[in-house]
Simulated assay, not measured.
Amino acid sequence: MENIVITVGAADCGTSPQMPYVGERFDGKNFTTLAKRYLCAALLRCGFDVIDPADGVCEPQDLILAANRHTVSAAITVSYTAFGSRKSFNDVHGSVVRYSQGRFGGKSRVLCEDICAKLGLFGKSATAPDGALGAANCPTAVVDAGYITYFDEAKMLYDPDFAVETGEHIAMGVCEHFGMPYIRRDDILSYPLLCSAATGKRGKKIKMLQALLCANGYRVEMDGIFGKNTDMAVKTFCINNGKRDCDGVTAAVWRDLLVLNPPKLEYGTKHNAVLYLQRKLTSKLYKTPLSGALDEDTVAAVNEYLTETESGLSTRKGGGITEEIFKLIQAVGGGRPRLF
């Protein structure tokens, strides 16, 4: 199989207008860096190789320079766009995929159309030219997943499931463009089992593991080598998620990294599923710490959400965060409405 290499970046797209209820502006970097890592993981799972030129965000010219230093088939940046002054919300919304008008303009447009066809996460997507991308020696795409100045899309900057969906839908478009099969994210058989003696192993699946560790807040380099830092990150992740006797990266560890089948969470629990829950609540405008620990503030926010949605559910009787509560909160979108 041909080794198709994609350069993947994340843009610094600024902050939203002031969000009600939580009293802060949402920073687009929270979304773009997370979506980039999930996109990297999706592409690697589907057989592509990826180059990430920066641990966090990078300017478009830096992505182009990274693409031009290597032999790559495409360069893709995840971003958010804006309309107006950013001082207040407006009604311009939807995803936009921008393509180069340079030497690879025609191929860029086809790539962007293939990605655009898989997006429409808010029911509206379009393509548009971008003259700033013309210096790339390959087809390019900048995927603006939404408008930071549109209230419902600004809330999504903290929604981990929207970051996952964005990454997966871009990967579907890239697979379509290059004629590669798309492998579902929840196909656990596509994730390798890595014992604790995996140190020194190399490959795309190791890089995929590193991308998911980064998405869960563990700082490792995406070099595709199972070195000491990656091994330590895996062990720390297992300990932090109640798997002290875990021997390497098992199917259960992959499920935790992907937040598939999250466990019942009791008060005081530390788990990456708690951080996921806190991000979801923040995206619905219920203020919580992003600590990864199920504390009083997080439980209070959960109960506020359950009360305001008239779900009939509650954590007050010592039941913890159950699967039923998780499924209710997992919905992308929703939450508290715009005040003005």
Rank of each mutant, 00 (worst) to 15 (best):
N3F: 00
V5R: 13
T7S: 12
G9K: 02
D12V: 00
D12C: 01
C13H: 15
Q18A: 03
P20G: 09
G23P: 00
F26Y: 15
T33P: 02
T33V: 15
L43M: 09
R45M: 13
C46Q: 10
F48K: 02
V50K: 08
V50C: 15
D52H: 00
V57T: 15
C58I: 12
E59W: 14
P60D: 13
L65H: 08
A66C: 08
A67V: 02
A67P: 01
V72T: 13
A74R: 06
S79A: 15
T81W: 11
F83P: 00
S85C: 02
F89A: 09
G94A: 11
Y99P: 09
Y99S: 06
S100A: 12
R103W: 02
R103Y: 05
F104E: 09
G105D: 08
G105T: 07
G106K: 12
R109W: 05
G123C: 05
G123M: 06
D130Y: 12
A132D: 14
L133N: 06
A135M: 11
A135V: 00
C138W: 10
C138T: 10
T140K: 05
A141D: 12
V142C: 11
V143I: 15
G146R: 08
I148A: 14
P160H: 08
D161I: 05
A163Q: 07
E165K: 15
H169Y: 05
G173Y: 07
E176V: 03
F178S: 07
P181I: 02
P181Y: 06
R185Y: 03
D186K: 03
S190D: 10
Y191R: 08
P192K: 08
L194A: 04
C195H: 13
G200M: 06
G203A: 01
I206F: 01
I206Q: 01
A211N: 10
A211D: 04
L213R: 05
V220Q: 11
E221C: 10
G224I: 08
K228A: 12
N229T: 11
A233N: 11
I239C: 14
K243C: 12
W254F: 07
L258C: 09
L260Y: 07
P262Q: 04
P263Y: 02
K264N: 10
K264P: 00
N272A: 02
L275V: 01
Y276E: 12
Y286K: 10
P289H: 09
S291W: 02
G292E: 05
A293R: 08
L294W: 01
T298D: 03
T298K: 05
V299T: 02
A300P: 00
A301T: 07
N303P: 01
E304R: 14
E304D: 14
L306K: 06
T307D: 13
T307G: 04
E308D: 14
E310V: 01
G312H: 06
G312N: 07
S314Q: 04
I321K: 06
T322G: 08
E323S: 14
E323W: 03
G335C: 13
G335Y: 12
R338F: 15
L339E: 14
